[in-house]
Simulated assay, not measured.
Amino acid sequence: MFKIVVFLILALSLNAKELMDIYRMEGIKAVEQELEKNLRDVNFWKKYLEKRNVEYGYYEYNKYVILAEKENKELSIFENLEDDYKLISKEKMIIGENSGDKLLEGDKKTPEGSYDLLQKKTGLDQFYGPFALVTSYPNSFDQSLNKKGHGIWIHGMPLNGDRESFTQGCLAIDNERLKSLDSNINLKKTVLITSHNELKKATKDDIAIILSSIYKWKDAWKYSNIEEYLSFYSKDFKRADRSDFNTFSNQKRQIFAKNENKTINLFNIDISPYPNSLDKTMYRVLMDEEYVSPSVQFYGKKELFVEVSNNKLQILTED
């Protein structure tokens, strides 16, 4: 904890003297409370992001972004250098035969959104080239919209040399470029963003709103403030099982009524732009969660799909 506090003091260098005075007078707990207050402040995050490029997202864990823009059929790989992005490569790709976002099994469309790469598959039919990288489509948001289909991969070209014109919905690139991509990224630290046309890039204002809102949401959750907690959720909220906001609200009211003491910590927050066919300004938030209460202990991933509208975060789906 002390190392974290020191890091945050350095990040808040303009307030370092004030924080040191608080530490001398009131102790480390008071410093922690002061820092937590800053994390809920959108202006703190705007200053924190001032010299940081967040066009392709904000990442504390992921190191690589693969951007697939379907209209111009280009696939770009970026390395996240913390304050900026380095373009590693850009190549042409082949996508699904039909345009638009994927909705149904067999519609021959390539999905639009933000996805993880789950595994590398080898020993496949020669049609897929040397191997395939499996994506996380359909994710929780896709499922909340009742989107169908599966098996969306990044793969190569047929080994027999017959270059295809389209895929069934996957993204396909030249075999040598696929091998190069694989050797230049860490599969487990990579996010894939697929966009219909040129990506609508993330803004610092949006990222600051999301980060400050996440810490406010976390505190409302921690202290069982049900009305404030639910205010972060869209009335259009749906889970992957398609249960709606009213169902979610009733469940949370029952849980919060216990007013249990809780420890909630969030780490490795990653925020990626989320292209979509709903005409919403959306982001996918993925983070490590530590949750401890008398009745539940959880250590794992928390995923939110959020909309930023009128300078406010609204959660559309949660997993």
Rank of each mutant, 00 (worst) to 15 (best):
M1W: 07
F2V: 15
I9V: 13
L14W: 09
L19C: 12
L19M: 12
L19G: 08
M20Y: 10
D21H: 08
I22Q: 00
M25F: 03
I28Y: 03
K29A: 05
N38Y: 15
R40M: 14
N43P: 04
W45D: 02
W45S: 07
K46D: 06
L49F: 11
Y59E: 05
Y64F: 15
Y64M: 00
V65E: 06
V65Q: 05
K70R: 15
E71D: 14
E79K: 15
E79W: 05
N80M: 05
N80A: 03
K86A: 10
K86D: 09
K86T: 00
K92A: 05
M93A: 06
I95A: 10
G96T: 04
G96E: 00
G100P: 10
G100I: 09
E105C: 03
K108C: 07
K108R: 13
T110H: 04
E112R: 02
S114G: 12
Y115Q: 07
D116T: 09
K120I: 14
G123T: 08
G123C: 11
L124E: 13
D125W: 05
D125C: 08
F127D: 03
Y128A: 07
G129A: 07
P130M: 08
P130D: 10
F131H: 03
F131K: 02
A132P: 03
T135A: 02
T135E: 03
Y137A: 01
Y137E: 06
F141S: 02
Q143G: 05
S144Y: 06
N146A: 14
G151H: 10
W153L: 09
I154V: 13
N160W: 07
E164H: 07
E164V: 13
S165R: 12
T167E: 00
A172T: 04
I173K: 02
D174E: 15
N175L: 06
E176W: 08
L178W: 04
K179I: 09
S180P: 01
L181D: 08
I185T: 02
K188R: 13
K189H: 10
V191M: 01
S195F: 08
L199K: 01
K200D: 10
K200N: 14
D205S: 14
D206P: 02
A208R: 08
I210F: 06
I210G: 05
I214R: 13
I214A: 06
W217F: 12
W217M: 08
D219Y: 11
A220E: 06
Y223K: 14
S224N: 15
S224G: 03
N225F: 08
N225Y: 09
E228T: 13
Y229F: 15
D236N: 14
D241K: 01
D241S: 11
R242I: 04
R242Y: 06
F245V: 00
F245I: 00
N246S: 12
T247P: 04
N250H: 01
Q251H: 09
Q254C: 01
N261M: 09
L266W: 10
N268L: 13
I269C: 07
I271N: 10
D279W: 03
D279Q: 11
V285T: 09
L286M: 07
M287C: 12
M287L: 15
E289P: 00
K302N: 04
L304V: 07
L304Y: 14
L304R: 02
V306C: 01
V308I: 15
N310C: 00
L316W: 00
L316I: 10
L316N: 01
T317Y: 04
E318S: 00
D319C: 05
